[in-house]
Every structure is written in structure tokens, then in C-alpha cells.
Write a protein that binds this DNA or RNA. Structure first.
Length: 496
RNA sequence: GGUCCUGUGGCCGAGUGGCUAGGCAAAGCUCUGCAAAAGCUUCUACACCAGUUCGAAUCUGGUCGGGACCUCCA
């Protein structure tokens, strides 16, 4: 079954074919580490994580490159203006690398919480100034870049005369030329649609590098072009990022790379939609962002409780990556319960003893299970329909629970089908969707202690001493541990 | 203003013209010392108006609403 992906460039689903068979190169626009990541930032990284995981599942050797934007016009947020005395103290001074390191670390920590596989290469913009300068010089040499007062701009009008500038973002070049905006350095540009390749640094800019045109810093778009070219080549398979990057970022990347490498960079452009709050995009300008640390702690006016990173991942997986998701505490709560139920069915399935070579008695049920399982790959092949994958897994959950409860008799389903079910849950839930148990209970000492308590409670119950049995259960519950009495008389426990 | 996307049951959300996605919530039942969990059952919606079609949530046109981008933006 071929994988189909929606290509933003052609605005339709296309069959994915790799440039080099068996290999896939994927570049994803990474975070700008001048501040803390918020919920909206989590979406692309989770989206491209399951895309990466799925490509691996389909047998590709994937080179996954995601940059760290650590260069540009940076200011530390919330920093109070220093007085002249403290400004002189060396340790009080804002050290750019310190700022960037702080938020890079925080970003990595958050990605770990979300169970995102780290990219194979995570290049930083500051580590690739030379490559960017080379690229800018090449663009100038080709006649598409010009220098004004130490800044270098890309000549969009000239490019658009012979190239399709605006195709990716559905922009019409004449409209762009008409837009009137008050922007820094606007008067230096030959044309309003032009964008900066290199910006001359004013004295107060904390990050600056020497260049043929004086001290400055790279334009926003050039880093991705330079690093993608360096690690994936002039032409690679997938370029991804948020929809809000379509214009001007990705449109400009195409223009730069095309001039420099004489080839448009990516074959498939994949863009995830936004996370909104009350229908509004989560972002700085709307002042409605919820930081990831706030999500995890519940410490935010819009949150009624803390949310586990896996709940957030599950929440994102429940809708298609190209649809907007409206955030609400209620929706997250629903996801939390749903994920718990699905995961518990998976735990049941894992413990299910499966024999060998026993055929099915209930052929219809057996067939239904096989069909639901086989559809999983179809859904993922159809532009990564994670929501549909989850829907099928939810349809399988009651079947699993019924097998355990005995509502479905032993032998109704063939052992082959049970094995298929077991391996498929593992592959889709863990390997592809990247979910994991939020609380790993693999502590054998704790398990032993709880088994002891379960035994004591069982003895009390046998003597109809319900006061004692309820005390054990209630006290454990107040500690966040829930006991469940099973049909066969045993009890199991899990963290609430 | 321009370009594009979108409007689904109490809520969240899939939906490729015909075959009630799924989740959460709610109600009833089964199981249980009681719980919890689980299972079964119930709740058949597609903004509005026209059109195309044997048949439209799905296609076309219009009306109204929401949003994204056009500026840093995931």
C-alpha cells in the first residue's frame, strides 16, 4: 500500500516516492530558543515525530534534521531594564549563549516529556554562519541579492519574473508589491516584497557576526536553506513546519535555494495546522499562550488541572494534523480519560495468554478484528490519519476487555488473530503514535508491598470484615493508587 | 482590502455522494459485599438558501458566521 501525503505545494495528496529509494530526507523548522515553548509549539514536533516514526515503519532510513534557531534579534523576555551600575557587572550582563542554552535545554526536556524521538541532526543557526554567508554571496553573484548599508536583501521582483514566487503560499506577487507596512529597514529595500538575507546589527544587538558587509546577523529564512542544503542536499524529500510558516518563511526558502542550488529544495511540503484558544491561534500577539511547563503543572488560569504530556500528545493525535485544534481544559480532560481507557485495554491485551494454532469459532468476530487491524495501515497511508487509527483501536478495546472478562468465550477468536492484535497494538500505539504509559509501574519493591496489602484485604474480605478491606482500598486511593477487584477474585492496582 | 481554510449531535472531533467513525458527558441494565473498572443498550447530527443528482454532511452557486496568512510566528 503506497503512502499518500498532502503536499502543500501542489495542494493535493500525492503518492510518496523517495528520491533515493529506501531513504528519506526530512527537514523540519525547529524552535526559536529565545523563549519558552508553549502548547502551540508542541504540535509540529509531535506531528513530525509520528511522521518520522511512520516513515521508519514503512521501511525508510530517515535522515531527520530539525534546526535550532538561536540567532537573530534576541531579547530576553521579562528582563527589567538594568541600571548603569549593574550593567557594568560582567555576570549581570546578558550573555547570548546563556539565554539560548537555557531555552534549548528546556525545549529538549519538553520533547522528552512528549516522547518525541530526537532528530538525527539538530543544527544551530549560529553554528552555520559560514554556510549562510556562502549562500548569500552566491545569491549576490547570481544577481539576486543586493547590499544596502551593510544589509543584504533578496530581489523578489527579479526572481518572480522567471520563477513562480508565491506558488507555495498561494500568493500573487502583484498583491505583495502593494502591501504597505512599516517595517525596520523597509526603506532600504528596492521593493516591499524583498526580504533580508543579512541584517546589519545596531549597537544594542546582542548577537553579531563579521561579514563582508560589516557586523550583522543572518536573515530569518537563510538558516534553514543553508542547513537543509548542507545535510540533505540541494533536493530532498520532505520539508515540514507549521502552516503559519508558509509565508513568508518557506516561500522565501524556496526562492533562495532555487537561486543558489538551481533546484527547488523539497519535493513534499507538509504543514501542520494551528492550536487555537477560543478559536484564536495561540501566539504571542494574542497573549493567549500556555507554556508547556504550565500545561504540565496546571498553573494557568485557563487550566482546571495539570495535564500529563501523554494526554497532550493523545489530544493532538485525536484530530488530523491539517485541522485546527481548539484547546480547552474540558477537551483535554476527555482525552485524558479516553487515553487511560485505551491504555488499560492495551495492558490487558499484553497480559493475555495466547496459545498456538487454535482456529476461530466465531468467524465473523475474527474477521472483524482482522479488518479493523488491517485498516490501521490504510489510515496512516492516507496522509497520516491518526484520528482514524485511534477510532479503530477504540473499537478493538471492548473486544479485548470482553475476551478477558469472558463475555467473549475463549477460542472465539483464533490465536493467530490474537497475536496480530497484540503486535498491532504495540506497533501503532507505541511505535507509531509514540504513546507510552504515563506512569511506569515497574518498581518491584512497590509491587511487592501492594501485593501484600492486596492479600491482607482479601483475607479481610473473606471474613466479611469490610471495614478493613475498605480502609485498605480507600487509603491507597488517597495516595493515588487504585485497587480493582477482578472477576476471578484477584485484585489489580494502578496509579490514578 | 487581497489570498486561503472552515461551520458536524450536550461537548470534542473523523468523514473519499449511497453503507449510523470514534471519544467525553448523560441515562438504563449486567457484574459486584460495596466501589471502581469493564460489558451491553439508548442519544442518527451535519450554519442557512437554492441548484446538480435516482440519491449530498460530502459537488456547484449564494447568504451569514468563525479562523489563518499577507508582520515575528509552530
Amino acid at each position: 500500500m503506497p503512502l499518500k501525503v498532502y503536499n502543500s505545494y501542489s495542494r493535493q495528496k500525492e503518492i510518496f516516492t523517495a528520491i533515493t529509494p529506501g531513504h528519506a530526507g526530512m527537514y523540519v523548522c525547529g524552535p526559536t530558543v529565545s523563549g519558552e515553548s508553549h502548547l502551540g509549539h508542541a504540535r509540529p514536533y509531535i506531528t513530525f515525530d509520528f511522521i518520522y516514526r511512520y516513515l521508519v515503519f514503512k521501511g525508510y532510513k530517515v535522515r531527520y534534521v530539525r534546526n535550532i534557531t538561536d540567532a537573530g534579534h534576541f531579547e530576553e523576555e521579562g528582563r527589567v531594564a538594568e541600571d548603569k551600575v549593574t550593567k557594568k557587572a560582567l555576570l549581570e550582563k546578558l550573555e547570548p549563549m546563556e539565554l539560548v542554552q537555557k531555552y534549548t535545554n528546556l525545549f529538549h526536556w519538553a520533547m522528552l516529556q512528549f516522547n518525541c524521538i530526537e532528530p538525527g541532526i539538530e543544527p544551530t543557526a549560529t553554528g552555520h554562519i559560514v554556510e549562510q554567508l556562502n549562500m548569500i554571496e552566491k545569491i549576490i553573484a547570481e544577481g539576486y541579492g543586493y547590499e544596502v548599508n551593510g544589509s543584504v536583501y533578496f530581489d523578489v521582483k527579479k526572481y518572480a519574473a522567471t520563477h513562480d514566487y508565491g506558488k507555495l503560499s498561494g500568493r500573487i506577487i502583484d498583491d505583495l508589491l502593494e502591501t504597505t507596512r512599516e517595517l525596520d529597514g523597509q526603506e532600504e529595500k528596492r521593493d516591499k516584497a524583498d526580504f533580508a538575507l543579512w541584517k546589519s546589527a545596531a549597537p544594542e544587538h546582542i548577537m553579531r557576526w563579521k561579514s563582508p558587509w560589516g557586523d550583522g546577523y543572518p536573515g530569518w529564512h537563510i538558516e534553514c536553506s543553508a542547513m537543509a542544503t548542507k545535510y540533505l542536499g540541494a533536493r530532498f524529500d520532505i520539508h515540514g513546519g507549521g502552516m503559519d510558516l508558509l509565508f513568508p518563511h518557506h516561500e522565501s526558502e524556496i526562492a533562495q535555494s532555487t537561486i543558489c542550488n538551481h533546484h527547488s529544495p523539497a519535493r513534499y511540503w507538509i504543514h501542520n495546522n494551528m492550536i487555537t484558544v477560543n478559536g484564536r491561534k495561540m501566539g504571542k500577539s494574542y497573549n493567549n499562550q500556555i507554556k508547556l511547563t504550565e500545561m504540565f503543572s496546571g498553573n494557568h488560569p485557563l487550566l482546571t488541572q495539570p495535564f500529563d504530556p501523554m494526554t497532550i500528545r493523545f489530544f493532538i493525535l485525536q484530530s488530523h494534523y491539517r485541522s485546527p485544534i481548539d484547546f480547552s481544559s474540558e477537551a483535554l480532560q476527555a482525552s485524558e480519560k479516553a487515553m487511560k481507557r485505551l491504555w488499560e485495554a492495551y495492558e490487558v491485551l499484553k497480559k493475555l495468554a495466547i496459545g498456538n494454532g487454535v482456529p476461530a469459532i466465531d468467524m465473523e468476530l475474527d474477521k472483524k478484528i482482522v479488518q479493523l487491524v488491517n485498516e490501521l495501515e490504510e489510515f496512516m497511508d492516507d496522509d497520516f490519519s491518526t484520528a482514524k487509527v485511534l477510532a479503530n483501536l477504540f473499537e478493538l478495546a471492548p473486544i479485548i476487555n470482553s475476551i478477558k472478562d469472558g463475555h467473549i468465550p475463549t477460542g472465539a477468536v483464533s490465536t493467530d488473530t490474537l497475536q496480530l492484535l497484540k503486535s498491532s497494538f504495540k506497533i501503532y500505539l507505541e511505535d507509531i503514535l509514540g504513546l507510552k504509559s504515563s506512569t511506569a509501574n515497574d518498581n518491584s519493591a512497590l509491587d511487592g508491598v501492594l501485593q501484600l496489602l492486596i492479600d491482607i484485604r482479601k483475607e479481610a474480605k473473606a471474613k466479611k470484615d469490610y471495614a478493613t478491606s475498605d480502609k485498605v482500598r480507600n487509603q491507597l486511593l488517597s495516595l493515588g493508587i487504585a485497587l480493582k477487584d477482578e472477576k476471578d477474585g484477584s485484585s489489580t492496582w494502578n496509579f490514578e
